[in-house]
Simulated assay, not measured.
Amino acid sequence: MQDLNDLICFARVVRFGGFAAAERATGERKSKLSKRVTRLEQYFGTRLIERSTRSFRVTDMGREVYRQCEAIVDRLEATEALAMTAKDEVRGTVRVSCSSGMMEYLGRDALVDFMRRYPQVRLQLLLSSQRVDLINERIDVAFRVATRFDTDQSLAMRSLGVSARILVASPELLAAQGGEPLQLEQLAAFPTLSVGELLERDRWEFANDSGETRAHAHVPHFSCGDMQLLCESAVAGMGVVLLPEHVCGPELKRGRLMHILPEWHAVEGNIHMVFTTPKGMLPPVRAFIDHCVEVFAERR
């Protein structure tokens, strides 16, 4: 029977996409990982990983072995979670994905407080406006804002609250246009910015307190998936933009953006965290989720 540690090391090398990456992520020396993978290949009598100085490729047999290894590693991690819970220890690594705009709303202090609270936890933060694949990218927790919650059955979700989307523009742009718009129809005279990539046209849906609904179709001057970049572009006077309050709030307070047409609001976005099934969740991941829930609860 093959050494269990050989299987675990092989799984880590494949999971992190290479020996050097696995060394950085786990702290295990690259030479040791290579030796264990070689021993495993000798046991199976075939190559599991094709490697050179320039490439890294898992063979068909390697992928089959990896699938079995992942099941073993998952069970070991679940067992470790039970053991650490029993000892009331919170240590390990948490990988988090978050957009720059959400990072501003969550607050850097929240992350610093978490690390102070759990000094044995290693926190890895991926700042990205792109929607990540938690399973394939090995992300433990991702923050998302959407008008509808995720329906992926492989993911669990924890709601944190809602964020209203509002129309904002810079004082300089409004002055150049002869003042702020007083009716939705007047938006047609303003350049616009939109959340999305390669948008030819966009459509904003609005409602007012009376329940009346209206729409504004437009061709954005600039579109991208990074809300923080859109906010900065609006501050620079490039156009009117519809953003969540948590993204543009700091610039509104500084007076670099103005809330226009306040009687009209867009559909509220649900702020939530998504993560893989809580069954067997490691203590540091659960601690991070609970910490963020506390942070958001204090703001309500």
Rank of each mutant, 00 (worst) to 15 (best):
Q124L: 13
E28S: 04
V13Y: 03
E80S: 13
M258P: 00
E185F: 05
F149D: 13
D209I: 15
A176R: 13
D133V: 01
E104L: 07
G101A: 12
F222E: 08
F206Y: 02
D202R: 02
I271R: 15
S55K: 07
Q177I: 06
E205Y: 09
H291F: 08
V295N: 09
T26K: 07
L106S: 13
G239K: 04
L242V: 13
R39C: 11
A175V: 01
V73S: 00
D150G: 15
M281V: 09
F143W: 11
E104P: 01
M103V: 01
E180N: 01
V94W: 05
A169S: 01
R39G: 15
A188K: 08
Y118S: 09
T213A: 14
E77G: 00
E205K: 10
E137F: 04
L82H: 07
I135F: 11
R299N: 03
M227S: 05
R75T: 14
R201K: 06
D60G: 11
Q183A: 11
W204K: 02
D6C: 07
M227G: 01
K30A: 09
S31H: 01
G239L: 00
G280L: 13
I289E: 05
E104S: 04
A217F: 14
V37K: 14
L127P: 03
V274F: 03
R144W: 04
R122N: 13
R54V: 10
H218Q: 12
D152P: 08
A188E: 14
H218M: 10
E41F: 08
D150I: 06
P181F: 03
L182V: 05
G92F: 00
G27R: 05
E41S: 14
Q183M: 11
E80M: 15
R300T: 01
R254K: 09
P244G: 10
G255H: 00
L82P: 02
R201V: 04
S210C: 11
A110E: 07
R116D: 07
M258E: 03
A22E: 01
V241R: 02
E251Y: 15
H218K: 06
Q183D: 13
Q153K: 10
R300Y: 02
S223F: 00
V162Q: 14
S52R: 02
G178T: 04
